[in-house]
């Protein structure tokens, strides 16, 4: 699904201000909330559509930069492929791993129904 782009005014100021922005489309808010598994209230959805547009409007400043020749940096460290020996090491016991579970049963995490009835 493609989402409607946040609409912002041209030349949004960068540092200490933000131009008036159109709220983000309500359908986009609903879609993102579903992806993020957040059961937002009606009021929160309304606020989100305004606030996200404001923040993204501020971020719109970077759209004016010439970035095509710039490589992206996802990580500041020049580390590559950090490996370790494939050996068994001590880890949590089953009891320790389950000690904080909201529900456990028979040495496993218990969860509500996952598969729909046929």
């Amino acid at each position: 699904m493609h989402l409607p782009r946040a609409v912002v005014g041209p030349g949004s100021s960068h540092i200490l201000g933000c131009t008036a922005t159109m709220p983000i489309d309500r359908k986009a808010v609903d879609h993102v909330a579903r992806l993020a598994r957040l059961d937002l209230t009606e009021d929160e959805r309304e606020r989100m559509s305004v606030e996200l547009a404001q923040i993204l409007g501020h971020a719109e400043a970077i759209q004016e930069l010439e970035l095509d020749d710039i490589e992206p940096t996802s990580h500041a460290l020049p580390l590559r492929n950090v490996m370790r020996a494939d050996v068994v090491r001590p880890s949590l016991t089953q009891d320790e791993a389950l000690a904080n579970a909201p529900q456990a049963e028979g040495g496993r995490f218990r969860v509500p129904r996952i598969i729909e009835d046929a």
Partner: peptide
Amino acid sequence: KRRIMLGTYALSAGYYDAYYGKALRVRSL
């Protein structure tokens, strides 16, 4: 919640390049 929504939006199909991808390039700058 606001940041989860913002991050999910910035990473979602159709927005990844315009927001997250560009931000990573600004990081290089």
